[in-house]
C-alpha cells in the first residue's frame, strides 16, 4: 500500500510538471500526458531498472517513446525519475532547449529514440531486443506507443518478427485513449478486438485500466515475471485529461485546447484533488 501511495504522488507530480510545461509553451499534448501519467509513474518509479545520473548505463532497461508527441509527458517522467532537473522544465519547447516539442534522442538524456514518425518504435525495439540477447544483456526493452500507431503496417511487421524471434525481453505498452488527429481512433481505423489481434500474433497480452495504479503495477510485474519465450504487450485504456475534470470533460480531441488562464486553474484543481486524497504533496 505504501508503494501505491508513493506512485500516486509520482503520478501527481508528473501531471503537475506536464501542466507547467504546457503553460510555458501555451500548448502541448497535455490531454495525453494527464492520461498516461499513471503508466509513466509505474514505469519510472517501479518497473524500469535505471541509473538517473547515468542515462546510458549499459544495464538499463530501454524505454522507447515511439509516440514522440508524448514528449511533454515523458519529460515530466524524466524529471520525476531524476534524469533531468526540474529547473529545466521552463525551457520546454524553446530555442536551444534539450526538451523539444517532439522527442528526439539527440536532444534529451534518457530519450532512447527519435520518435514522432509513428510506427517506428516497435521495429527499433525488435532490433534492440535482438541486440541485447546477442550481447547476453538481461535488460528489457519497453516500447511505448499510441493507439494511432496500430494503423501503421510497420507495427504489425514488428509484431510478427518479435513473436517469430521469441523476444521475451520485449514489452510493448499501448496507450489506448481512443483519440487520433481526425477523431476517435476506432472511427479513424477500427482496431478492435485488440487483445485478440495481439494474441493471434503470438504475444502475451494484458489489457488493463491505465488509470488504475494497482492494475498498472500488477501488469508491469506480470509482463516481466512471465517465463515464456515470447514478447509481451500491455494495452492500457486511459482517459485523456485524467486528474483535471474540466479537461477530462472537454470535447475530446487529439490536441486539447487550453486557454491561457486555464493552466493555473488546472494546476490548482490538481493540487486540491491531491490534498483531498490525503496524500502529502
Amino acid at each position: 500500500m505504501k508503494e501505491l501511495q508513493n506512485l500516486r504522488q509520482s503520478a501527481y507530480r508528473i501531471r503537475r510538471y506536464a501542466l507547467r510545461m504546457g503553460e510555458v509553451q501555451g500548448q502541448g499534448y497535455i490531454g495525453q500526458a494527464l492520461g498516461y501519467a499513471d503508466v509513466l509513474a509505474v514505469a519510472y518509479r517501479h518497473a524500469l531498472r535505471l541509473r538517473p545520473s547515468e542515462p546510458q548505463w549499459e544495464g538499463r532497461d530501454r524505454f522507447l517513446l515511439s509516440h514522440g508527441h508524448y514528449a511533454i509527458a515523458f519529460y515530466a517522467a524524466l524529471i520525476e525519475a531524476g534524469v533531468i532537473p526540474e529547473s529545466e522544465l521552463d525551457t520546454y519547447g524553446s530555442d536551444d532547449s534539450r526538451l523539444p516539442m517532439s522527442g528526439m534522442a539527440t536532444y534529451t538524456p534518457g530519450m532512447e529514440i527519435s520518435g514522432g514518425s509513428l510506427g517506428q518504435g516497435l521495429p527499433i525495439a525488435v532490433g534492440m531486443a535482438l541486440g541485447l540477447r546477442r550481447k547476453e544483456n538481461p535488460a528489457f526493452v519497453y516500447n511505448s506507443m499510441s493507439d494511432g500507431e496500430l494503423d501503421e503496417g510497420s507495427t504489425w511487421e514488428a509484431a510478427m518478427a518479435a513473436a517469430h524471434h521469441g523476444l521475451s525481453n520485449l514489452v510493448c505498452l499501448v496507450d489506448i485513449n481512443n483519440q487520433q488527429a481526425d477523431g476517435p481512433s476506432g472511427k479513424v481505423l477500427g482496431f478492435e478486438p485488440l487483445a485478440d489481434k495481439w494474441a493471434a500474433f503470438g504475444w502475451h497480452v494484458q489489457r488493463v485500466d491505465g488509470n488504475d495504479l494497482a492494475a498498472v503495477l500488477e501488469a508491469f510485474d506480470a509482463a516481466r515475471a512471465l517465463r515464456e519465450a515470447r514478447p509481451r504487450v500491455i494495452l492500457f485504456d486511459t482517459l485523456m485529461g485524467k486528474g483535471v475534470p474540466f479537461l477530462e470533460q472537454r470535447e475530446k480531441n487529439h490536441f486539447i485546447r487550453v486557454d491561457p488562464p486555464e493552466w493555473q486553474e488546472a494546476i490548482r484543481i490538481l493540487d486540491e484533488s491531491q490534498q483531498t486524497e490525503g496524500v502529502p504533496a
Partner: peptide, 24 residues
C-alpha cells in the same frame, strides 16, 4: 549472427537501427 526479418523492409531498417543502437 544472422537475423531474418521476413519480407518487411520497414522492419528491416528499423530493427537494423535498433541493433546499431546496441553497438552492433
Amino acid at each position: 549472427r544472422f537475423f531474418q526479418m521476413g519480407m518487411a523492409e520497414q522492419l528491416l531498417m528499423g530493427a537494423a537501427g535498433g541493433l546499431a543502437k546496441e553497438g552492433l
